[in-house]
């Protein structure tokens, strides 16, 4: 059993290792696809919210690992802050105007595009990013 787990982890890491940066984007891109696939605005909000929460939880989890370097912790903090802002905007909290039902598809695209662009400034190392992806997969 243990060897299977180890083997599974190695396979997972090999699969994820190459496009680690893209996996986070893909996660939000998949969420955006689901948002567009449903007509119901409440369901759209739930999909978006759950995606934010899953990634935030994964970030918290990874941040608690003792071996994560300080630079990555700073990057994770900033990434969490941007996710929190998106959650606030979706719900209309903290001074944000609530995203209207008609704008939810566009908002899901915004989340994907902003995450892709944020990579330029968020200096999370590839290894930490890989851990985040694995934790997201385990949590969802």
């Amino acid at each position: 059993m243990k060897s299977r787990t180890v083997f599974g982890s190695i396979v997972m890491m090999l699969v994820l290792a190459l496009p680690a940066n893209g996996q986070l984007q893909k996660y939000f891109s998949d969420a955006a696809k689901k948002v567009k696939a449903t007509e119901n605005a409440s369901e759209k909000r739930i999909i978006l919210n759950e995606s934010f929460q899953a990634v935030s939880k994964a970030l918290d989890k990874v941040q608690s690992f003792a071996l994560i370097p300080e630079n990555d912790r700073v990057g994770i903090d900033r990434f969490k802050a941007t996710l929190r802002e998106k959650q606030d905007e979706l719900a209309g909290l903290n001074g944000f105007a609530r995203v209207s039902d008609e704008q939810l598809n566009a908002f899901s695209d915004y989340v994907v595009q902003d995450t892709e662009q944020a990579e330029a400034v968020i200096t999370i190392s590839l290894v930490t990013l890989l851990l985040i992806i694995i934790v997201i997969l385990l949590l969802t």
Partner: peptide, 12 residues
Amino acid sequence: GDYRYHDADGNE
């Protein structure tokens, strides 16, 4: 480098 992005249709 890692030059991937997703278009509005979700295509990588």
